[in-house]
Structures are given as C-alpha cells and as structure tokens.
Amino acid sequence: MTVAGFTHRFTTRPNKALSRDVGDYVARVVASLPQLPLVARYLVQRIFDRTVLGFWWIALRALTPVAAMALIFMHVTEFGTPGLFYPVFLLAGMTVWIVVDIGISYGMRSLFAGRRLQRMMRLPAFLFSLASLSMPLIHGAVMLSVLVFAVIVCGIAGVDLPSMMRWQLALFPVLIALVAMLVTGLTVFVSIAFILTRDTRFVVPMLTQVWFFGTPVLYPLSALPPGWQTLSLYLNPLTPIMEASRYALFGIGQWPAVPLLVSAFFIGVVFLCGIWFMMRSEWVLPDMS
C-alpha cells in the first residue's frame, strides 16, 4: 500500500519480529543519522553539565596520565624504542588507546544518559552508541594535536625523530576507524549491561585496565618474548592496530598485514554482533526500565 505525498515513514515489516530484520534496523539507523549530531551534543553536554572546568577536562583527562607515564617510564630502559623518543612513542600509542578507553567508559553510560532524549524522540538505540564516539574522538583529536605539538617541539629541541610526513600517514584514519568500530561494538554490550546492572561500572574499568597492560601502549611489542608477541598480535585486536599506527605515524616497526586482517575481521564481527544485539535488545529495554 502506498500513499502519495508522504514525506517520511517509519516501517517495520508486518507480522515479522523487529529483531529479525537487520536490514530494517540498519535502515532506521541510517535514516536517523541526521539526528546524530544532536545526540552527540546531548551526550557531551550532559557530561560537562555542572562542572567548573567544563571542556578543559578533556585536555586534563587526556594529558595528565600521559605526562605521568612518560615521566616515569622513559627511564625504564626495557621500554626504550630505537629511533623514537619515548614520550613521543607513548603519545602515539595513547592516541589510539584513549579512543578505546574513553569510548568504552563513556559509551557504557550512553544509553542511560540518553534516556531523556529517548523519551522525547524515539531514536534507534544504536544511534546512542554511535553518538557516544564523540567523546573518544574528541579526546583522540586532542591527543593527536599534542603529539604533533610534541614532534614540533622535539624538532626544535634537536631530538632526532622520524618524519611524520609520509604517505603511510593516510592509513592512520583507517586505523582509527577500525578502533571506532571496535569501540562501538563493545559499547553496545556494556551500555546494555550498565542499564541492567551497575556491576558493569566496576567490571569494565577493571577489564579495560587489564587490556591496557596487555596492549603495547607503554612498551614496544618487541619487549615481549616472541611467543607472547604472536599471542598478542593474533588474540588482541588492538595490538596490530597499535603497531600499524606507529608504523603509519613514524614508520617504525613493520606493517602487520596478516594480524591486522585478523583484527579487522574480529572487529567486523563485534560490530555486526553489536548491531544485532542492540536491535533485539531495543525491544526489550523499555520493559526493563
């Protein structure tokens, strides 16, 4: 049945469960994408409502731990990276890691924080997971700016650094996009878990911290024994991305082609599972609140 002159519509297939039709759901999400900036702005503003420093917390939150870690670990010889000044090495790793860390910690609260907006506009819940990427991407951008600034300062100070102006630099956004997909997929699960039980806020930081130490952010992958290196490359989806990002930024190390493919496959699975899970959960979540 078609009715002429209709400007937009909301559709689910008759006599078919909402959950089963991934295509319809994705279409809904795509149709709602114009609302993404609004949702993102809402989530970001909620975070900084009633704060004194406001958006300055982004810089503080991003730089303080990096500065502390750089000051301490630059004196640990095992963490030394040939050809790269350690604070820059750390900043390069943290630029990727902070997207994961901030993304999961804020994404965990995205559905809960957006419940008022959901009450006003019935948006696909997956849109909130996408919108929750705004905070980690802002943090990542800040960290990248600091990295560039540090490279410039090091250049002025006479510290020998590889040049960033290489064609491989174009791969860095692709890597960040992979990380964003991974974070979005994980965010779906943890945000729903956060609505169901507040245990999530204890479990997630704990696991994130374990993941942080299991990922070569503080240390180069070569600091691990060979067996552990292989394990980390193939079991931790972030390891190849971390290595590839340093290669893209500074050309150090090697491009981990096969582990990166495995990682991309894993991330794709997590992302699709996230869509599927959110789609089915969206029907149930109103009954849980």
């Binding site: 009715v3 002159g5 209709f6 400007t7 937009h8 519509r9 909301f10 559709t11 689910t12 297939r13 008759p14 006599n15 078919k16 469960a17 909402l18 009450r119 006003m120 506009m121 019935r122 969206e282 029907w283």
Partner: peptide
C-alpha cells in the same frame, strides 16, 4: 508521535 516503535506494521506520515 514517534515516541514508541511498533512491533509490526508500518506508519506513514504526511507532514511534520
């Protein structure tokens, strides 16, 4: 009003 999503069927609007 768009405040709830139906579990089946289709809703069409002619306007805002």
């Amino acid at each position: 009003a768009g405040l709830e999503a139906p579990t089946a069927g289709e809703v069409r609007y002619n306007g805002r």
